[in-house]
């Protein structure tokens, strides 16, 4: 079933991709025999039967994950999205501290070690990357470190 749902979604995407390739993409002037539209058309036409084949003969029936695991994965995705959202405005140090703390606690770290670990990654990571390796990381609200 899981296979079918995924292949179904891919199938719709492939259909959409092919339709766009056949209708929207057009060069104002044909420079070469194929133009920009032929290659996407070929890809679309080849991918549609592949999706149909998987729809007809799926080999993974279910993902077989308990509800608890789904919950943990959903929490991880939320954390990652929040981390992405806060990364620039809050700055590397604070955003990383919060993210590492939340994730390590969820994965079973104790509070004290989790705090020490997250603070270490945030602060040491920032200075190693910006000062030693000269990478570009956002300072965010902690403007004194810029």
């Amino acid at each position: 079933m899981a296979d079918r749902i995924f292949a179904g979604v891919l199938f719709l995407v492939a259909i959409g991709y092919t339709i766009i390739a056949f209708t929207v993409i057009r060069a104002p002037f044909q420079y070469d025999p194929l133009g920009p539209e032929s290659w996407p058309r070929i890809l679309g036409i080849v991918s549609i039967p592949c999706c149909l084949f998987i729809l007809a003969k799926p080999d993974v029936s279910s993902l077989g994950l308990p509800a608890k695991t789904w919950g943990r994965l959903a929490a991880l995705i939320v954390m990652l999205l929040v981390y992405s959202y806060l990364f620039q405005p809050l700055g590397f140090i604070l955003a990383t501290f919060a993210f590492c703390l939340a994730l390590s606690l969820m994965l079973g770290a104790r509070l004290v070690t989790g705090l020490a670990f997250s603070a270490g990654i945030g602060i040491v990571g920032y200075f190693v990357c910006t000062k030693l390796l000269e990478l570009n990381l956002p300072a965010g609200v902690l403007t004194i470190f810029r």
């Binding site: 990364f87 590397f92 590492c100 994730l103 390590s104 770290a109 670990f117 570009n136 990381l137 956002p138």
Partner: peptide, 17 residues
Amino acid sequence: QFLTPLIAVLAFIGVYS
């Protein structure tokens, strides 16, 4: 529990930098 967040942080550093 410490290795996993570290991977995410490295990935974010890499893409952002």
